[in-house]
Design a protein around this nucleic acid. Structure first.
Length: 749
DNA sequence: CTAGCATGTCATTGT
DNA sequence: TAACAATGACATGCT
C-alpha cells in the first residue's frame, strides 16, 4: 500500500512537473477532487487521519521506524505523534518551503523572473536556516519524530553542491536563471532539491528517469519543488495543489523590487504555529496566504541578501519603525529571533502577530526578544524596565523614566517583579517548558489563540483524551477514580457472590460473567463447550453432573470452543474424539487434571464457587478420601485465589489508568494556572506602568518654594498608608525601601 | 536464547 | 476463629 501510494504520488507529481516545465499548467487538485477520490486521499491526505497515516508511513520508509504490532496503544501512539509534530512544528519551517517551491513550478512558464524570485529564495533560505539553527537548540528534537527531519537536514547539508551551468535542456533555462538568482542571494540549490534527494533514493528505481534527473539538476530541482508542492517531505502531509495558485497570486502582488531582508523571515515565522498544525491545514494556509498578501502589499522596500547574514538588528532598526512599547533586542540576529523565540520566548508570538494585517511593519517585533531566556530580558527591553528595575541597575533605561529620575517604587516593585520573574523561571524549569511558555504567552496575548489546555500540553489535549479513553474506557465506565476501581471490581466480585449465593444456573451465569470479564466473549461458548468437554472423561461415569461445567476455559477463544462444541459426540469418529480429548486436556487447568485424576465427583467450578455451606453439604454427600478432600480444598482455594488475583490485577490496572488520568488533569490545571498567572503578571505590569507614569507626572509638576522642580535624585514621592502622598528626601525613601525589602525576606526565613 | 508479558499459585495479611 | 478477599512475590508458559 505504501509503495502504491508513493508510486502514484510520485508519478503524478512528476507528470505534473513535466507539464509545468513545458508551460502547461496543471491543477492537480481539480483532478484529484473530481475524478479520483482514492487518489485524492492518497495524495492530499485531507484529514488528520490521513495525515497521520501518511506521516507514519513515511516515517516507516524513512527510518524504518515501525509501530509495535500490538495495536492497543495505537491511539495514544498516533496522538502522541501528532502532538509531538504539532509542538515541534513551532520551530520548523516546512510549509514555506513547499509554498515557494510550488510557486516556482508555476511561475517559470510565465517568464516573470525577477519580481518574486528573491522572495522565494529568501523564504527557502530562511526556512532552512531556521531549521538548521533550531535543530541543536531544541532538545525536543531528539525524539524520533524529529529524527527523520534531522536526517533531512543532514541530507540537505550533505547534498551535492549546486551544479549550476550543467544545463542541458533549453526549456528549463529560464528556471536556471531563477535558481541562479537565488544562489546569488545566498540560497543554494541544494535547498531546493534536498527533499528530492532524500526521496530520490527511495523512488528513483521506480521512476526510471534517474539519468535525466541527474543530468539536469534544474529539472530535478523543479521536480522536487513539485513534489514538495503536494507532499511534505517530513510528515508526509499533503497539501492541496491549489496552493500554487494562491502563491502565484501573492507573489504577483509582491513588488518587483526585492523585499526587506527580515520580511520573509519575519513574515513566515508567525505562521509556524499554524501551518503545521494538522487540524485545519488548508484553513491555516489560507490565513497564511492572506497574511503574506498583506505584508507583500505593505512592504515594498529593499532587497535581502541580509536575510541570512543580516547585521544584528539591522532589519529591525532600518526598515521598521518600532513602537516604543515593543520589546526589541537589537543584538538578536534574525535566525535566533525566529528560532529562539519559537522555542524559548514568551513574547515571540505577541499581539503584533495577530494584528499583523493591520500593522504589517510590526511583524518583526515579536522576533526581537528571542535571545531572552526569561521574562527578565523581555521586560528589560521594554519601557517597563524602569518600573521593574532600579534605574541605576538598568542600563537600558527607558525613555520615559530617565536615569535622573529615581524610581521611588523601585524597592517594592523590583522585588515583586523579581519574585514573579523568578517564579516564572521556576515554573519554566519545573516543566512548563519554553514551548508551552511561548504558546501560553501567545495565547493570552491573543484571545483567538489556541487554548493551552486543548493543544499545548500533550497530556492535556482533548484529542488524546479521546483516544486515551480507549485505554481508560474501563475506568471511565466505572464512575470516578477511587470508586471506579472498586466499582469495576465489584462488578465481577458481585457476580461471583451472586453465583455463590444461589448455585445451579446462577453459577453458570457467574462463569459466564467471569469469562466475559476476562476475555470478553460470549458466555454461551464456554458454557456449552464445558459441557461437551466434560462428556468424554469423568462425566461418563457421572452423567448426572453433565450439565455442570467449569470456568477454567475463560481464556479460550470462542471460535475454538465453538468448533470443539459443534460436532455431536455421537456422530464423530473415534479419532476425532481422541483429538477432542487431547484438546480438552490441553485446555484443562492443572487442577482439573488433578481432579480428574483423583476422580473428584464434581466439577472444579462447583468446588470453587459454591458457598461454604453448600460446598460442605456437597462434600458430605460423597465418600471422599483424605487426598480427595485435600485436593478439593486446594482446588477451591486456588480457584478463589485465581479469581482474586484477576480482580486484583484488574483493579490495579484501573488504578493506574485513573492515576494517569489524574495526572493529565493536574497537568491541565497546572497549565491553566500558569496561564492565569501570566495574565495576572501582565495586568500587574500594566498597573505598575500606570503608577509609574502617574508618579512621574505628579513629580514633574511639583515645584519648590522657588518655583523650581524637585530633583528626582534628591526627592521622592512616598505613598502613605492612608492614601496620601508625601514628598520626602531620597535618602529617607531609600531607607524605607530597604526596610520593606528586608521585612518580607525575614518573614520567609 | 532472552525479555517481556499474562496468568496461575503461594504466602501473608486484613476483614 | 473460619472463610475469604486482597496483594506481593514467584513460577510458568507463551510470543
Amino acid at each position: 500500500m505504501l509503495s502504491l501510494k508513493k508510486y502514484l504520488t510520485e508519478g503524478l507529481l512528476q507528470f505534473t512537473i513535466l507539464l509545468s516545465l513545458i508551460g502547461v499548467r496543471v491543477d492537480v487538485d481539480t483532478y484529484l477532487t473530481s475524478q479520483l477520490p482514492p487518489l485524492r486521499e492518497i495524495i492530499l491526505g485531507p484529514s488528520s487521519a490521513y495525515t497521520q497515516t501518511q506521516f507514519h508511513n513515511l516515517r516507516n520508509t524513512l527510518d524504518g521506524y515501525g509501530i509495535h504490532p500490538k495495536s492497543i496503544d495505537l491511539d495514544n501512539y498516533f496522538t502522541a505523534r501528532r502532538l509531538l509534530s504539532q509542538v515541534r512544528a513551532l520551530d520548523r519551517f516546512q510549509v514555506p518551503t513547499t509554498e515557494v517551491n510550488a510557486w516556482l513550478v508555476h511561475r517559470d512558464p510565465e517568464g516573470s523572473v525577477s519580481g518574486s524570485q528573491p522572495s522565494s529564495g529568501l523564504a527557502l533560505e530562511s526556512s532552512s536556516g531556521l531549521q538548521d539553527v533550531t535543530g541543536p537548540d531544541n532538545g525536543v528534537r531528539e525524539s524520533e519524530t524529529e529524527q527523520g527531519f534531522s536526517e533531512d537536514l543532514e541530507d540537505l547539508g550533505a547534498v551535492a553542491p549546486p551544479v549550476s551551468g550543467d544545463l542541458t535542456k533549453e526549456d528549463i533555462d529560464l528556471i536556471d536563471i531563477l535558481w541562479r538568482q537565488d544562489i546569488d542571494l545566498g540560497a543554494g540549490r541544494e535547498i531546493f532539491d534536498y527533499s528530492h534527494r532524500q526521496k530520490e533514493q527511495d523512488v528513483d528505481k521506480e521512476l526510471q528517469d534517474g539519468a535525466e534527473q541527474e543530468d539536469t539538476w534544474p529539472g530535478e530541482g523543479a521536480e522536487a519543488l513539485a513534489r514538495n508542492l503536494l507532499v511534505d517531505g517530513e510528515t508526509g502531509e499533503s497539501f492541496p495543489a491549489q496552493f500554487p495558485a494562491d502563491i502565484s497570486s501573492i507573489t504577483e502582488a509582491v513588488p518587483s523590487e526585492s523585499e526587506p531582508p527580515g520580511l520573509q523571515n519575519n513574515l513566515l515565522s508567525p505562521l509556524l504555529t499554524g501551518t503545521e498544525s494538522p487540524f485545519d491545514l488548508e484553513q491555516q494556509w489560507q490565513d497564511l496566504m492572506s497574511i503574506m498578501e498583506m505584508q507583500a502589499m505593505e512592504v515594498n522596500t529593499s532587497t535581502s541578501e541580509i536575510l541570512y547574514n543580516a547585521p544584528p538588528g539591522d532589519p529591525l532598526s532600518t526598515n521598521y519603525s518600532l513602537a516604543p512599547n515593543t520589546p526589541i533586542n537589537q543584538n538578536v540576529s534574525l535566525h535566533q529571533a525566529s528560532l529562539g523565540g519559537c522555542s524559548q520566548d514568551f513574547s515571540l508570538f505577541s499581539p503584533e502577530v495577530e494584528s499583523l494585517p493591520v500593522a504589517g511593519s510590526s511583524t518583526l517585533l515579536p522576533l526581537a526578544p528571542s535571545n531572552s531566556t526569561s521574562l527578565n530580558s523581555t521586560f528589560g527591553s521594554t519601557n517597563l524596565a524602569g518600573l521593574f528595575f532600579p534605574p541605576q541597575l538598568n542600563g537600558t533605561a527607558n525613555d520615559t523614566a530617565g536615569p535622573e529620575l529615581p524610581d521611588p517604587l523601585g524597592g517594592l516593585l523590583d522585588e515583586a517583579m523579581l519574585d514573579e520573574i523568578s517564579l516564572m523561571d521556576l515554573a519554566i524549569e519545573e516543566g512548563f517548558n519554553p514551548v508551552q511558555a511561548s504558546q501560553l504567552e501567545e495565547e493570552f496575548d491573543s484571545d483567538s489563540g489556541l487554548s493551552l489546555d486543548s493543544s499545548h500540553s500533550p497530556s492535556s489535549l482533548s484529542s488524546p483524551e479521546g483516544s486515551s479513553s480507549s485505554s481508560s474506557s474501563s475506568s471511565s465506565s466505572s464512575s470516578s477514580s477511587s470508586s471506579s476501581s472498586s466499582a469495576s471490581s465489584s462488578a465481577s466480585s458481585s457476580f461471583s457472590e451472586e453465583g455463590a449465593v444461589g448455585y445451579s444456573s446462577d453459577s453458570e451465569t457467574l462463569d459466564l460473567e467471569e469469562a466475559e470479564g476476562a476475555v470478553g466473549y460470549q458466555p454461551e461458548y464456554s458454557k456449552f463447550c464445558r459441557m461437551s468437554y466434560q462428556d468424554p472423561s469423568q462425566l461418563s461415569c457421572l452423567p448426572y453432573l453433565e450439565h455442570v461445567g467449569h470456568n477454567h476455559t475463560y481464556n479460550m477463544a470462542p471460535s475454538a470452543l465453538d468448533s470443539a462444541d459443534l460436532p455431536p459426540p455421537s456422530t464423530v469418529k473415534k479419532g476425532s474424539k481422541e483429538k477432542q480429548a487431547d484438546f480438552l486436556d490441553k485446555q484443562m487447568s492443572r487442577d482439573e487434571h488433578r481432579a480428574r485424576a483423583m476422580k473428584i465427583p464434581f466439577t472444579n467450578d462447583k468446588i470453587i464457587n459454591l458457598p461454604v455451606e453448600e460446598f460442605n453439604e456437597l462434600l458430605s454427600k460423597y465418600q471422599l478420601s483424605e487426598a480427595q478432600l485435600s485436593l478439593i480444598r486446594d482446588i477451591r482455594r486456588r480457584g478463589k485465589n485465581k479469581m482474586a488475583a484477576q480482580n486484583c490485577r484488574k483493579r490495579k490496572l484501573d488504578t493506574i489508568l485513573n492515576l494517569e488520568r489524574d495526572v493529565e488533569d493536574l497537568q491541565r490545571d497546572k497549565a491553566r494556572l500558569l496561564q492565569e498567572k501570566v495574565e495576572f503578571l501582565r495586568s500587574l505590569r500594566q498597573m505598575k506602568q500606570k503608577v509609574q507614569s502617574l508618579y512621574q507626572e505628579v513629580f514633574g509638576r511639583l515645584r519648590d518654594e522657588n518655583g523650581r522642580p524637585y530633583s528626582p535624585s534628591q526627592y521622592a514621592l512616598q505613598y502613605a498608608g492612608d492614601g496620601s502622598v508625601l514628598l520626602i528626601p531620597r535618602t529617607l525613601a531609600d531607607q524605607q525601601a530597604r526596610r520593606q525589602e528586608r521585612k518580607p525576606k525575614d518573614r520567609r526565613k
